[in-house]
Amino acid sequence: MGGKKDDNERRSSRGVTRRGFFTAVGAGAVGAAAIGRAQAPGEAAIATAGEPAKVALRINGRAYRLLVEPRWTLLFVLRERLGLSGAKAGCERGECGTCTVLIDGVPRYACTTLAVEAEGHEITTLEGLMNGDKLGPVQQAFLEEDALQCGYCTPGQIMAAEGLLRANPRPTLDEIRTGMSGNLCRCGAYTHIFKAVQKASELKKAGGR
């Protein structure tokens, strides 16, 4: 499996990064079942319990082919197999929102999405919001508005905001509150988070991606 490392790691001049090392170790399995090929019309995709099956995922515009057990969640695959650790593991039961990613442009919980179910869909993670070395507009807005304390919920908040603004580029405060209601912040930074979403809307309008 090539292409495991995100852009930052590939640019690293220190040789093997810690994250890169672990993902490379995890990529050794071969001899997969037959789920990964595009599902032929009229034919069922099948994966056997406990056996890694080939799956093709499209993440942040890049195609990955990897081996996935049926029970692996998208969150597990992103973090533990691909080293994309932007999405965080919190409750792991769809109750906190810190694992939020975009699937086909809409926010969803990666912890309650099976990786095999994500096949054929466009997945966007926090890493995918970067503009090269620079923060994307939503990330920048969260920084400028000081929209976090401990920061653990922040990746999910940013992805929820990104999804909200893609569907509704100029949301009202009420729409922001509703749109962000699937993400908990135990530090209680909500007021700043709502301000950050408003700011992100402005930054996007001003030409940010």
């Binding site: 789920i35 069922a44 319990a49 029970r71």
Partner: peptide, 16 residues
């Protein structure tokens, strides 16, 4: 981690 299970994604309702 979820417990183990097989996964089938049928293309038709009758197959499901």
């Amino acid at each position: 981690m979820l417990p183990n299970f097989n996964y089938v994604r049928p293309a038709t309702l009758s197959d499901a």
